[in-house]
Design a protein around this nucleic acid. Structure first.
Length: 430
DNA sequence: TCTGGGGTCCTAGGACCC
DNA sequence: TCTGGGGTCCTAGGACCC
């Protein structure tokens, strides 16, 4: 029997960053492990064992240092080159199973699995799970349901199940309400802390209660976003797959410094670097920016004088070359930089992005200069993509940056760097 | 000592237009 | 004294996601 309604599967990698590390480091396999954010600041990924110990997502490392030591938890700095590459492998594997796929985040994808017969969803999902594990080494959980929101719910249930089979199919489930009742309201996709508090105050404490809440009241309190959520919980699919992601409307590069910055020329170097990254990203998606914004801030967690400011400017014409964007960003940075503060973080934001194919120049554009800059940028991009990031860059970015990110426990870039590729030691006995 | 980074969508309100 | 009606565009702020 074929289904008339859409069927969604949500494939979610288990403890993704930790799983990536474990693929290449067998010593981590049975050890509790965590992966840290930039600057080794917070815990952003935890193995199952660590979750059981009650260490929350986003906990600053220093707040649980004792527990980590006591429990012998392995601690790793983030290795985004590795995670990005592993993510690509997982997604490519999923694409073997359907071409209707939405890559939702680095470790999650929605698949449309319509047209299977009702009793086949479970088996098909299990096959997907086995294949991903076999081809990439990454364990995944899969939830299958009639809407994206319900697939999220199913995935959650799959992750919590004791048998760890990791597949939960709730299509036409006889006890849907019973399942929804087990999902606390704050864990529902799209209900954050604020809404969770508001809903609980009004007697809605789990997903089942939201499902049967008054639609008008929800729309009033949570806008159309909440209304859509409610419909999805009722089994009516209103959030469809987004197969080709729309181009980004804003592109941002911002980082905390490994140590505070006080000097203007150091800030200059940081802004130059961030602006360079932004320009690269914007070119990569074939866009150009109309507005450049720069912001900087001191550390709000620390005592002492605080300062935060931002400034933005509209470019004479949309632009995506590194030099012009960098010059603009640095000039903005100079305007808001005030001496006498310890800066913790700065960032560059490019907004009002337009397609690079039809940029509206103004009357005074010097076409020769424009072409020259475009060519230089293209050559820089090519060299950097072949030889590695920043092989060629603007001198203003500085050479050694003592303030740059701290990553003291990073694993090798096993899959993206020739020098760090894993070596297998074989001992042959005669 | 030590507290991440990069996005999206929706709404209200102001500026502006005819 | 009396001060329209209808629309668009933009921005800031608030909510959310991973």
């Amino acid at each position: 029997m074929k289904q008339e309604f859409p069927i969604f599967a949500l494939v979610d990698c288990n403890n993704f960053y930790v799983s990536c590390e474990r693929v290449f480091n067998p010593f981590l396999t049975r050890r509790p492990a965590v992966v840290l954010s930039n600057n080794d600041g917070c815990i952003v990924a935890r193995s199952q064992e660590v979750k059981k110990l009650g260490i929350a997502m986003g906990t600053p490392l220093f707040k649980c240092a004792d527990l980590i030591k006591k429990q012998g938890i392995a601690v790793l700095s983030s290795n985004y080159a590795l995670y990005g590459d592993m993510s690509r492998r997982v997604m490519q594997t999923l694409e073997q199973f359907t071409d209707r796929i939405e890559i939702y985040s680095i470790d999650e994808a929605f698949l449309r699995l319509d047209n299977l017969s009702l009793d086949n969803y479970q088996k098909y999902a299990e096959k997907i799970q086995r294949t991903v594990l076999q081809w990439t080494g990454i364990p995944v959980s899969i939830g299958v349901a009639e809407t994206k929101t319900l697939a999220k719910v199913a995935n959650r249930v799959a992750k919590m199940r004791e048998d760890q089979r990791g597949v939960m199919n709730i299509v036409q489930h006889p006890d849907m309400d019973g399942i929804l009742e087990t999902v606390e309201i704050g864990k529902v996709w799209g209900v954050g802390r604020r809404y969770a508090r508001m809903l609980k105050k009004n007697g809605i404490a789990n997903a089942r209660q939201l499902k049967y809440a008054d639609r008008k009241w929800i729309a009033e309190k949570m806008t159309v976003v909440g209304e859509r959520l409610l419909l999805e919980l009722r089994g009516k699919s209103v959030i469809d797959l987004e197969q080709t992601p729309p181009p980004k409307k804003a592109i941002c590069t911002s980082k905390s410094f490994g140590r505070p910055i006080e000097k203007k020329d150091e800030m200059h170097a940081a802004v130059t670097e961030y602006a360079t990254r932004c320009a690269e990203k914007v070119r990569k998606q074939g866009s150009a920016a109309s507005v450049v914004m720069v912001f900087m801030t001191t550390n709000p967690f620390k005592k002492g004088p605080q300062y935060a400011n931002y400034k933005q400017i509209r470019l004479p014409a949309p632009c995506n070359n590194t030099r012009e964007i960098t010059e603009t960003a640095c000039s903005l940075g100079d305007q808001i930089f005030k001496p006498g503060y310890k800066y913790k973080k700065a960032g560059v934001l490019l907004t009002q992005l337009v397609s690079a194919d039809h940029i509206q120049q103004n009357l005074f554009t010097d076409q020769v200069v424009l072409e020259k800059r475009k060519k230089i940028t293209q050559v820089m991009d090519r060299i950097n993509s072949l030889r590695g990031r920043d092989k060629i860059r603007l001198a203003a970015a500085g050479f050694t940056n003592p303030w740059s990110m701290k990553r003291e426990m990073k694993s090798p870039e096993y899959t993206t760097c020739w020098a760090e590729i894993p070596v297998v030691n074989c001992r042959v006995s005669r």
